[in-house]
Design a protein around this nucleic acid. Structure first.
Lengths: 346, 346
DNA sequence: CTGTTAGCGCATTCAA
DNA sequence: TTGAATGCGCTAACAG
């Protein structure tokens, strides 16, 4: 391992001081004379010089690293968000570092700590917040420490901890979906919900209930099946639903991956879709385009979520101004999985 | 932005020198006396000290950053690999930085350069190599510069540039697939291939041809449709196939996302699957579980690919020993999309 | 076993 | 405009 070329070597070859070399390379306001700049640039090129980002960070006091923490990068929900984050950070000349909690929310705390060590310029926490107070406290402490050092933080999900956030209107979206389904003539429902500790799941569930209530329908507890917030969770949840004997004309899974898993389970058990039962999801993840029957859902501009989070976190902002909130609403998209019921009388 | 707590402050509070504080925090062989360690640890805790990773990197001469460069993180192929990389890097105490070329292979060069600035410990290039000589040269130059500084590099795809690589046996996999399809009784084929500049596509196509040849079938050029290596590419490719009037009983898409897109197109044009035509893909991406009819493909352990790449790149290795190659073979998985033909006489 | 000292590579203030 | 000097936070030889 040959030691990398340093600024000093470039300066020497160019016959100038390191200060001049530094300034020439930066091209800022304090630009040296043109001919000197040329010499430095040439020397740098000839030596194949590459500035040491770590050293720059130490000297300058901050990095250009954006940390992204997701729950599961192989989930299309998160990979879509990640695409937006990576792309946008890159456009801003920032580097994206990624951590994956594998759905173990308590690990978010560790990762924020790691990012603090990296002196990341910002961290973006994507995914549902937890209802666990203890966890909230721990995360808050860690984030405060991070922010105390000048770091910026943004949440993609719910407003919590008083931070910049890209807020997804889960409740309103689910409510609207429920109403649309009712208008389609559906009257009996069952829901595949995620863990009670996930705010996203809680919000979507309660929003859905509200929507039904407006149409005089009450969703009894025995019609709510809790499982993992994943495709497999949807699968087993649907099986539980089937085994329960609950009669429902429409099954709402609180997110698309669960809905897709549920459809697979239903199909595997001889239920034909959408003839025997209607199914709806939430998120409108990209791969949904190829699901058959096409799935009714609530569209959320996932990639945009990532873009906005980066813009929020990278935009110059008063150190302690009010946290900004970008509200993102979902749009109900009715597709083949929830056909209108002729008997609805509409 | 309050300046972060430094080691010096911790040392002062603990009443020891920075060297001692550093050693106490590291817990290496040169551990200070027990009581001193305690004092340091306590001071660090009380001050909520967080070591400056950038400074450590500068002093130590290297980072613990692993850079991952993918073509498209929202493609399940890459997100699965990324999951493996992130997870494994984390287990090794390394941080993963991610770049996404958005399928513009020439950007790999830029990203390697960026990673060199970060003084990343290693970089992993996932995705097909290019057949473009010029591009190969540029990338090689950049990688050599990176390696000259002690960085390690691993490729996930094809052996190229004489580097450690997790090699996917595309040709053999495609060949085996073709043979299996023939054994199933299929006799007329068409292929949806990617750009001729992608080695992965080229290899799979030629492997497939070889397999057919062994069964006395020749794949004429008019039966090969070139499109993008994406879901949409598969969609439009299938449309081109349909429009061409080519008769084929089985359509092979060189990767699963293309196959899925193709199935959508076929279906949209009134072709029923698998009755009217058989379809096969390659990779066995996770979301394939929920495709109907289930897709015949060549299974590749994607997440494992990422794991192995990290292990390759993070394992102590002689600086200039022979590049290591981990061969990963694909396994043909016959599913519903390619039913056996009764008329095959088997 | 602990403290002192000298860098690491770079940005930047302060003189010249 | 340019250069010399200082500091960033930390690690690692070196010395006591």
């Amino acid at each position: 391992m040959i030691a990398p070329v340093t600024l000093a070597e470039v300066a020497r070859m160019a016959g100038v001081s390191v200060a001049t070399a530094s300034r020439a390379l930066h091209g800022g306001p304090r630009r040296p004379r043109d001919d000197l700049c040329q010499r430095v640039l040439q020397a740098a090129a000839r030596l194949n010089y590459s500035p040491n980002a770590a050293a720059q960070a130490v000297a300058r006091g901050h990095t250009n690293v954006v940390g992204l923490i997701v729950q599961d990068i192989s989930d299309p929900y998160f990979s879509a968000i990640a695409a937006g984050v990576i792309q946008t950070a890159d456009e801003h000349g920032a580097v994206t570092t990624m951590a994956d909690t594998r759905r173990r929310l308590e690990r978010e705390v560790e990762y924020v700590a790691t990012l603090r060590q990296q002196r990341a310029r910002a961290v973006i926490l994507a995914g549902s917040r937890s209802t666990d107070r203890q966890l909230q406290r721990a995360l808050q402490r860690e984030i405060e420490a991070f922010c105390a050092n000048g770091g910026r933080v943004a949440l993609i999900s719910q407003r919590q901890l008083d931070l910049d956030t890209v807020l997804i209107e889960n409740r309103a979206g689910a409510r609207a979906l429920a109403e649309e389904l009712c208008k389609l003539g559906h009257r009996s429902f069952a829901v595949l919900a995620g863990p009670a500790s996930l705010v996203t799941s809680v919000d979507r569930l309660s929003g859905f209930k509200e929507g039904l209530t407006r149409h005089g329908i009450r969703l009894t507890p025995d019609r709510v099946f809790r499982t993992d917030f994943t495709r497999d969770g949807g699968y087993s949840g649907a099986e539980a639903f089937l085994a329960s004997g609950v009669e429902a004309g429409c099954l709402f899974a609180v997110n698309d991956v669960m809905a897709v898993g549920a459809m697979a389970a239903l199909r595997a058990h001889g239920v034909s879709l959408p003839a025997d039962i209607a199914v709806a999801g939430f998120d409108d993840i990209p791969p949904l385009r190829d699901v058959v029957p096409s799935l009714t859902t609530v569209h959320v501009p996932l990639e945009t979520l990532g873009v906005q989070a980066v813009e929020l976190v990278l935009s110059a902002a008063d150190p302690d101004a009010e946290p900004r909130v970008k509200r993102v609403s979902g749009t109900v998209v009715i597709r083949e999985s929830t056909p209108a019921l002729i008997s609805s009388g509409r």
